[in-house]
Design a protein around this nucleic acid. Structure first.
Lengths: 253, 253
DNA sequence: CGAACCTTTGAAGTGACTCAATGCGTGTGG
DNA sequence: CCACACGCATTGAGTCACTTCAAAGGTTCG
């Protein structure tokens, strides 16, 4: 059987043992479909007793504002884990919605327990990935806090592309971006009207091509320069990881 | 010996066994002082081979912009762990500076290895705390992306106060805030001039009192309302944690 | 007693916002 | 097969929150 996107993604960072892969497969048992626009979990409603692995499609998490506005917090690609806030809290702190028809796997967070006891290296990998997301979030905070509209769009596009690259190594300067301009504006903290004007401008400036649902980066260097972009997804520092768990013996230092 | 702020903070979330506390004490061995304004680690310079526990004082991490601007990413209080980005990366992705004379403990990240192998419940707690920070970061992203100046300041003040509360349970509506208006403006993504006008306005509106280095929240309800604030620091969901490690036996499910 | 740092104020400019409307493709029901 | 509705992209005009540039007032400290 071919690897799932989840395993592909983890293998991108770390050589997994057979035992580790087997332990992970438990997390991808309950696969199901969500239609575009459908809500997977919602802010302050229901219990956050599970996490979700994205198998296919595209989803995002957001928080609403009192005035009806919305801030998109994260965008989830195949191989990503959604709902990690429920590791800390018993209620969802954001709302997850499918941007296109997607396929996800739900697993109860108690499944993590045996990973922590029996597969310490996987626990370490999870922590690393959590901290990676943390750094990416800081990059976005900096972008939204301190740079103008074009730079914010540039960061979003480059990040989207590089995240896609992990599980789709073929991805280059052109890719599908199945988000509306309204979605993008909610992600970069601007109004849809202004976001549209920015897209127009970036088109005439020769930075990007944009046709509904599809983007081409025409000048990656200038985009990266604009947004001071760093690709955080290349590799992780594994120097502090414990020994891997192999099937036969239960490790040892 | 009295608990350190670090242990106090972790105990706020979880009853630690004697063995667990002993394991943590290793992380607080190399204490040293940093003067106000001093840099602990800097963006893209040197190796990120260590983490830091704050014992006393106040520090923050930031990233610079090309034009000389700065975005403050996080503010560290006693009991907080700085430099968690080095869990994922070999180079610092931000710059940490002491806001006031502080005292911190440095420990190599390889110290985490034995915690992951021998104290799975501590590993789980660390992961939870990482995800908590993640959610807090999302709250700030939302604030900076979608709300106006007053709301951003309100969030910063409430968050600062509630974070302080963890290790200083006495803290109420008045507390020291040893940051300049320029620092605060770098944290909320505004210019110092405008930040000052916002402070002035919030003063006349009866929301806060502000004297250099000291703040009093005069109308917490309205501040919380303005910023749609949620205190994330009250408690963690521990339902998925593995059994604690006790000194004598090496656990078992 | 002046230098350095921070806060405060004034005035003018601008990037992004609001309100308002048009265009455009797609699906759907009459 | 056309009329209509709906969701999304585009454009225009006026306004406002926040910025930039410029300078003055307070404190603290050597």
């Amino acid at each position: 059987m071919a690897d799932s996107c989840f395993v592909t993604k983890l293998k991108h960072y770390l050589d997994l043992t057979a035992a580790e892969q087997k332990a992970l497969s438990v997390l991808e048992e309950g696969e199901y479909s969500v239609a575009a626009g459908e809500v997977v979990f919602a802010e302050e409603s229901g219990d956050a007793d599970a996490l979700y692995v994205v198998r296919d499609g595209l989803l995002h998490s957001s928080r609403l504002m009192k005035d009806g506005g919305r801030q998109i917090l994260r965008i989830f690609h195949p191989g990503d884990v959604m709902g990690t806030a429920s590791i800390a809290f018993a209620k969802p702190s954001s709302t997850a919605v499918a941007a296109v028809d997607s396929s996800i796997c739900r697993f109860p967070k108690t499944s993590l327990m045996s990973i922590y006891t029996d597969y310490p290296r996987l626990a370490a990998l999870f922590y690393s990935l959590g901290m990676l997301e943390n750094v990416v979030l800081c990059d976005r905070l900096r972008s939204i806090g301190r740079s103008d509209g074009e730079a914010r769009i540039a960061l979003l596009l480059l990040d989207f592309r590089d995240r896609l690259k992990i599980t789709r190594p073929g991805t280059a300067e052109a890719f599908d971006l199945p988000l509306t301009q309204a979605d993008i504006s909610d992600a970069i903290g601007m109004t849809p009207i202004h976001t549209n004007r920015l897209f127009m401008r970036m088109r005439t400036e020769g930075l990007i091509e944009w046709t509904k649902g599809h983007v081409r980066l025409l000048d990656e260097k200038r985009l990266a320069d604009l947004s001071d972009y760093v690709n955080r997804y290349e590799s992780l520092d594994k120097s502090w990881y414990p020994q891997p768990t192999t099937g036969s013996q239960q490790d040892g230092v």
